[in-house]
Structures are given as C-alpha cells and as structure tokens.
Simulated assay, not measured.
Amino acid sequence: MSGLVDWDFAVNLGARVAGDGPAVQADVAAATVAELRAGADRSTGLVREFTGLVAAEHTAPVLVVDRRGWVQANADGFATIIEPMIARVNEKKGASPSGLSVAIGSRVTGAEVGLLLGFLGTKVLGQFDPFHDPSGRLLLVAPNIVHVEREIGADPTDFRLWVCLHEETHRVQFTAVPWMRDHLFSEMTALTQSIEPTRLAEDAVRRISEAVRGGGSLMDVMSTPEQREILDRITGVMSLLEGHADVVMDGVGPSVIPSVDKIRRSFNERRKGIGTLDRVLRRLLGLDAKMAQYRDGASFVNQVVDKVGMEQFNAVWASPANLPSKAEIEDPAAWITRVL
C-alpha cells in the first residue's frame, strides 16, 4: 500500500496543515471531553425514541479526538477503501511497488491526501466511521466543536449535545441497519475499481484547472459515465443518511436543547463558507455538494415523514432496494410510489 500513498507523510502533513485549533486550558479541555462523551451516551435513547430505530448500545466506541487524531483516522479509512484498487494494480504490475511508485509518486500522492485531510480537519465536527472493525467508531473532534461554538456564540452545553445527536444518529443508522456498512463499502469499492491509477498524476493539473474554470468540483471533472452512475447511487445514500441525521437533531432538539433554533440559524449561515479562498476550496473539494446532501436529504425525509409518518418512512432501511436514488431524493413522491 505504501507504493501508492505515503500514508505517514500524508498524516504528518495533514496534521501540520490542520494545526491544533483554539487554545484551551487543560481543565476546560478535560471537561469538554467528558461532556461530549456524556452527550453521545445521552443521545442514544433520544435517537431511538424519535426514529424508532433500535441499535445496541456501546457497540461502537466513542472517541473524542484532536485534529491530528481525526486526520489519522481518516487516512486509515481511505487506505481501507482504496485497498481493492491497489490490489488490482499490483496484480497487473507485479508484487513490487517500485514501478507504480515511479509512475505516480507515493510522496506526491501523500501530499495531495495530506493537504485534503488538513483542510477538512479544521472543518469536521464529528464523524461515524462505519468501516472500522468490528462495528465502526464515533469520532468527535473537540477542537473544532469548541471553535465553532465560540465562533457562532452558541451555548456550549447545548451545541455539544446538538452535534452528538447528529453523529449518534449515524451510529444508529449503521448499527440498527446491519447491511448498510457492506452496501456502502461495495459502492465505494466499485468506484475505486473504476479508477485508472496510472492516469491520476498525469491528469491532475489539467483536471484542477478545468474545475476552477468551470466552477465545479474535482469529482465532476474526474468522472466517467460509469463513475457518475456509481456516484449518483452513493449521493442518494449519503443524502439520506445526512438528511436523516439533520432531521433527528432538529426534531429532538427542542425538547432537550433550549437554544436549538438559534444554533441552527447560526450554523446554516456558517456552512456557506467564510472568505473567498474558503469558498473556492469548498467548491473544488465538492463540499458545496456535501452541503446540498444535508439540505436535500433533510427535505426528502421531512416530506416523506409528513406524508406517511416515521414508521412507514423506516421502510427505507429494509433493504438496499428501498434506498432512494439521487433522483428520488429530489422527488420524494416518486420514492413513496415505488417503495410504499
């Protein structure tokens, strides 16, 4: 695997780019970690009561991490996802990675991954990693949570529980729906297997230039028709997961988070990006599309639940065939007609 990406270099660079985050005294940091752990535990029952999804408690560890810890966890996740592609390439090229290293440059690729993780490592508040054995793990990025709550002037206790509700919903989605992990992994594998690694380096500059000029993301200009089909399916799933989590955090919020309305208004404004450079990077990395997943997915969930109720909506978790397509995310009535 080191022949394709220098993962140690990627992590070290990503950690340097991300930095440490806001300065926090040791006792405040310890209290923050304790409050986030307690918020994750408290969220389990709240999510179950609101959604009707039953997931065993404590099946996935809750890790309160710093920015470097998040970068390391995601480098590990990337390595797991692209392993099938590396195996395929090594089978074609032979066991020795030297030829592949010359063609791509593991250190150059490591730098690209590191810069990406470093930028994202300053933005992400939490994440459920479904591919970590055996049952996934929940990551809460304490420095970023503290940074955002200060930036938007949120009540720290309220904001931390609000974030925990969103991330705990993801844990419930993957643990209460046991086929979800394998389904999403198979889609990711199909995407990586469709990529021709030897062309990544030679086309990188051209593709970045096209993305900047065209106002799209790197994924837009790197996608073949086959990849777009896979991306559409993944987009449908991710929109469902992210939108569902947003609906839960806002639906549960009023009963346990007094300032939830203020938090949502401030947070939505912040999601638009701060400054020209930040907006350009968000567009290039596809984060604008990620924000659309939250918005469109939440609209899908709300419209279906308003029409048929949460119990019938939960048919979406019955099998992969019941997942909404990207088109159905934008047309909830079509999903209702097809599935219900």
Rank of each mutant, 00 (worst) to 15 (best):
A15I: 01
E226S: 13
Q293T: 14
S98C: 06
E330H: 15
A79Y: 04
D220G: 10
H183Q: 11
R264C: 08
W7L: 11
A201I: 05
E167P: 01
L323R: 12
E202A: 13
E330R: 13
I230H: 01
P324I: 12
T175C: 08
S98N: 09
H58E: 11
R42M: 12
L218P: 09
N74I: 00
A95M: 13
K123E: 14
M180Y: 10
I274S: 14
G77P: 04
T59G: 08
L200N: 01
I230E: 03
K290Q: 12
W317E: 12
Q293M: 15
G309V: 10
S325Y: 08
D278W: 08
R107K: 15
H170F: 10
S101E: 13
Q193F: 05
D182R: 11
T192W: 07
I82G: 00
I152N: 04
A176N: 02
R295F: 07
A321G: 07
G3V: 06
V17H: 03
A10L: 07
V47R: 02
P320L: 10
Q227M: 14
P320I: 04
D155K: 02
A23M: 11
D66Y: 06
D158C: 05
I263M: 03
L240G: 01
A29N: 06
L161Y: 03
N322F: 05
A176G: 06
K123G: 04
G275C: 11
S255R: 14
V177K: 03
A26Q: 13
